[in-house]
């Protein structure tokens, strides 16, 4: 437990170079809030969906920036700063070391999502029923954790591919399109809906919208379970990829090659 939580927090403090106040506020708070406003006004103009759709959807999506990039940073910055070898020399289980790193980023994502939802609701006048708040926080936490596991999977690719930032940037852009956060899923082609179903956030956004609409946590439960499943799947994929790429890096003596 200490390895998972304390190790994760120490790695977060050491590696997440966006944790400075100016970077945190500019990139992780202001950026997502304006993204929400952009799509809310566009949605209003086009009559695609109401403000609630965009406020809730973009609040859930706002966690992706910290979680996807955070997960990537958690692995690839070790390599960039020459400390990956030291981590892999440790006699502790790799899976725990790296999966623990997803936890602070998920917490970070939750904080950003709560801020974006609160600020977006205040600016655009959305009233969320008080009874929905506990379920909503749970949903945002699950979405953030699922997203952090996805980020860790991308970070694992950083052990194999040199420019993992490219993959992270493209993934974020695709999530905006495929998760049904900004375009209602009914208006997307079938194949995009299928791909979106396998991405984090998609089901969390659905659950959050149900809760804000006044549904009970039980009604939002199936979507939440699907989000948990997606998150667990990415955690497993990340663990497997980390093992494979670590073994390959040792065999090819390319562990610290940039």
């Amino acid at each position: 437990m200490r390895l998972l939580v304390v190790g994760g927090v120490i790695a977060y403090r050491a590696l997440f170079n966006w944790a400075r106040p100016s970077m945190f506020v500019g990139t992780l708070l202001i950026g997502p809030l304006f993204q929400l406003l952009f799509f809310a006004y566009l949605g209003r103009q086009l009559g695609v969906a109401d403000d609630t759709f965009y406020i809730v959807g973009n609040a859930v999506l706002s966690a992706t920036l910290a979680c996807v990039f955070g997960g990537t940073i958690a692995v690839s910055n070790e390599r960039r700063w020459g400390t990956l070898g030291h981590v892999l020399l440790s006699p502790r289980p790799r899976t725990l070391i790296f999966l623990g790193r997803a936890i602070p980023y998920a917490g970070n994502g939750l904080l950003i999502a709560v801020f974006t939802l609160t600020a977006g609701s205040l600016l655009l006048g959305l009233r969320i029923p008080a009874s929905a708040l506990p379920g909503l926080v749970l949903t945002l936490a699950v979405g953030s954790l699922s997203c952090a596991c996805f980020g860790l999977t991308l970070g694992a690719l950083g052990l194999r591919f040199r420019d993992v930032w490219l993959i992270s940037n493209v993934s974020l852009a695709l999530m905006m399109l495929l998760t049904g956060v900004n375009v209602p899923a009914a208006h997307l082609p079938e194949w995009m809906r299928v791909v979106g179903g396998g991405l984090p956030i998609t089901h969390a956004a659905e659950a959050a919208r149900r809760l804000v609409a006044g549904d009970s946590l039980a009604a939002a439960g199936p979507a939440l379970v699907r989000e948990v499943t997606v998150g667990v799947a990415y955690a497993v994929v990340a663990a497997v990829l980390l093992k494979i790429f670590e073994a390959e890096s040792r065999r090819r003596a390319s562990l610290d090659t940039l």
């Binding site: 566009l42 949605g43 695609v48 493209v170 852009a173 399109l177 208006h187």
Partner: peptide, 14 residues
């Protein structure tokens, strides 16, 4: 990706 998003949004809208 942004252009695709814009296309689906405008198609879905009025």
């Amino acid at each position: 990706v942004q252009a695709t998003l814009a296309v689906y949004l405008f198609r879905a809208g009025s």
